[in-house]
């Protein structure tokens, strides 16, 4: 396209394709927040988290659980409600450049989703293993569970659902219907949270030890496989972006 004075002015005025500030902020938000959580665990896990019948356990851990549950429900409703409320009702008539910009924003969400999955499914889940080797299990709401099950899992669920909601409400690519692998990539890891019900039921009634490979845990394994569905999302995105670029990049 010919670079006229007008188009140069328009270029200078328009928003960048990728909002790098939002990308950095997104990654830093999780990093800083979880670093704080890790510090909190380190201090109050030992000083107030060993005996669930102690009054300090109520102060430092059960109150944390109540607060985080309320905040998560509010965050889930707020973020998804906002994305839905501000949806583009003419999504099929946006310009290619705007579409590309939205793909970048969508990828900021996906980067955050992957990052949140790492913290939840890897960092805090394996961490729970070592906490169980250190304390005697006397409650379902042991400190590592209050962080792993009821904080890090809801956070990746909120991030994943927001990412899906963004794609569905703002990108023409996802107007064909419901993207099966995107659904699996979001709903599968989400199902790990309800599976906590099975886990706690089993550990409460008949299995007090913490053998990590016990069949009781296989529900987590099954739903963890769903993270692979991110490959279907990547493939769809690659096709969509290639179509938008229409350039030979070789």
């Amino acid at each position: 396209m010919a670079a006229t004075t007008e188009s140069v002015k328009a270029d200078a005025a328009e928003a960048p394709l990728l909002n790098r500030r939002n990308l950095t902020l997104g990654i830093m938000l999780y990093l800083v927040f979880y670093s704080f959580i890790r510090w909190y665990e380190g201090v109050y896990g030992w000083s107030a988290g060993l005996d669930s019948f102690a009054p300090e356990f109520e102060t430092y851990w059960m109150n944390m659980l109540y607060i985080e549950l309320v905040l998560e429900v509010l965050l889930f409703a707020g973020i998804n409600g906002y994305i839905w409320k501000t949806r583009d009702r003419k999504v099929m008539s946006i310009t290619p450049r705007e579409e590309l910009r939205r793909h970048f924003t969508h990828w900021i969400w996906l980067v955050c989703y992957g990052w949140a999955i790492y913290w939840g499914a890897s960092y805090f889940t394996e961490q729970d293993g070592t906490w169980h080797q250190t304390i005697v299990r006397d409650t379902d709401f042991t400190p590592s569970h209050i962080i792993e099950f009821y904080l890090s899992y809801p956070i990746y669920i909120i991030t994943g659902s927001a990412s899906f909601m963004y794609a569905k409400t703002r990108l023409p690519t996802y107007q064909e219907g419901l993207h099966l692998m995107y659904l699996i990539a979001v709903i599968g890891p989400f199902m790990i949270l309800p599976n906590v019900g099975l886990n706690e039921w089993g550990h409460t009634f008949w299995f007090m030890e913490e053998l990590f490979v016990a069949p009781l845990h296989y529900g987590f394994v099954f739903f963890g496989w769903a993270a692979l569905a991110i490959m279907g999302v990547v493939n769809t995105e690659v096709m969509a972006i290639t179509k938008l670029l229409k350039k030979d990049l070789a």
């Binding site: 992957g114 999955i117 790492y118 499914a121 889940t125 496989w225 993270a227 692979l228 991110i230 990547v234």
Partner: peptide, 11 residues
């Protein structure tokens, strides 16, 4: 994203 999502699921 692929790295972190695969990491989480695989781990």
């Amino acid at each position: 994203t692929l790295f972190t999502a695969v990491l989480g699921g695989y781990h």
